[in-house]
Design a protein around this nucleic acid. Structure first.
Lengths: 160, 160
DNA sequence: CTACATGCAAAGAGTTTGCATCCGC
DNA sequence: GCGGATGCAAACTCTTTGCATGTAG
């Protein structure tokens, strides 16, 4: 990763911000996420190491780190952001609509589409945060009959 | 659109559900969205016609219509779903990360990428709900400065 | 020592739920 | 009339904010 301890300490000092234990814990917790981490995961990891850290601090610190561009917040759907240490090679997300697991794919796999859309649609696709929704290998079998809209009775029995 | 009045009335009756004025109003309100409509837009339109309709009813009815597959809920980021009348030709969404406007693009434009990912990643991309995040023609100029700052700090450059 | 950062609790936004009433069929 | 649908209000979840206290530099 491009940001080691010296990097962020220097960056924060340069800008007149303080390097607090909470900020370091939270940065570490994001790094443990292997690419993408939800708020709850970060909060959980931080609490395990120091249970005194407050939710509000984690919210504020995540915003702060994103603003400093040490961290990137990616919208992969599900109404929740995922956080990643910035500066990694561009990659994208395959999000399973069923089990919500998020897998990464390389930039090369989609680069061509980006170029094409850029030209044809005059729309600049953000290269770091593409989210493709669909069904993963495990969930696809379960979902195939879904397309035929047959299991509704079952679903609806508890829904309404 | 594939679902006219007869369609959905028949469908609901078939399944033992009732056709209420609220459900018809809400279905109409989604149809007025020209492709994608947020909850608040639906609620607003419904209230203008019948101010007695409750928020909870709109929430419940949207879920109900999605479950009946008369309506499709698409996650285009921003933490909020957009609703569309089902059965339209497959299309996708270009979502501007700055102004949040959502534009549609045809399926053809991205079909090849889907096939490729399907084969290489063993992941089935949901053909109706692809959301591509980026910046639209209007917002891109405003964001270039922003991106530049980003790149300076993090050697993050990856031009398109 | 002086701001900036944190903890705490309360307030907000958005959504869901329990229950009595209503009304489609 | 029966059972599903609605309205209402309360409960819930997630996030933000005001303010007093703590602490990095």
């Amino acid at each position: 990763m491009t940001h080691n301890r010296l990097d962020y300490v220097a960056l924060m000092h340069e800008r007149g911000f303080r390097v607090t234990p909470q900020r370091q814990l939270i940065l570490d917790a994001i790094g443990e996420g292997g690419g993408h981490t939800t708020f709850e995961e970060v909060f959980g990891r931080v609490q395990r190491k120091s249970s005194a850290v407050n939710r509000a601090t984690v919210y504020r610190t995540l915003d702060f780190l994103v603003e400093l561009r040490l961290v990137v917040a990616a919208d992969v759907g599900g109404g929740r952001l995922v956080y990643e240490i910035a500066g990694e090679t561009p990659h994208h997300h395959l999000v399973c609509l069923n089990c919500r697991t998020v897998r990464q794919i390389s930039h090369e796999a989609v680069a061509q589409l980006f170029t094409q859309i850029e030209q044809e649609q005059k729309f600049h696709v953000e290269t770091n945060h593409l989210a493709l929704f669909g069904y993963c290998e495990d969930c696809l079998p379960k979902m195939t009959f879904h397309n035929h809209a047959h299991e509704l009775e079952h679903a609806h029995a508890h829904a309404l």
